[in-house]
């Protein structure tokens, strides 16, 4: 899906937990996430901290969209 959207010229950032799969499907901007059933959350953190974590990941995704890349790039979680 990532590839077909990008083929139309739209930059896509792929937020996913299993990075190797994202690499084989051909995503070019990849931000690794938390866990398969809750990529953008963590039920153990409680609602406030969880939303902070999500905000951080989404901000990272937005940054990836602003970053020119020449090849598949994994933006590591900091």
């Amino acid at each position: 899906m990532v590839k077909e959207i990008e083929r139309k010229g739209l930059p896509v950032v792929h937020l996913c937990t299993v990075v190797p799969i994202s690499l084989t499907v051909g995503a070019n901007r990849i931000v690794p996430t938390v866990a398969i059933p809750y990529p953008l959350g963590d039920p153990a953190l409680g609602p406030e901290k969880e939303k902070e974590l999500r905000l951080k990941l989404v901000k990272q995704a937005l940054q990836a969209l602003e970053t020119p890349v020449q090849e598949q790039t994994v933006f590591s979680r900091d």
Partner: peptide
């Protein structure tokens, strides 16, 4: 559709 609707970029999430 996204291009027609003036979208600039996409966030795609997978589980």
């Amino acid at each position: 559709e996204l291009v027609n609707e003036g979208v600039h970029a996409v966030i795609l999430t997978s589980t």
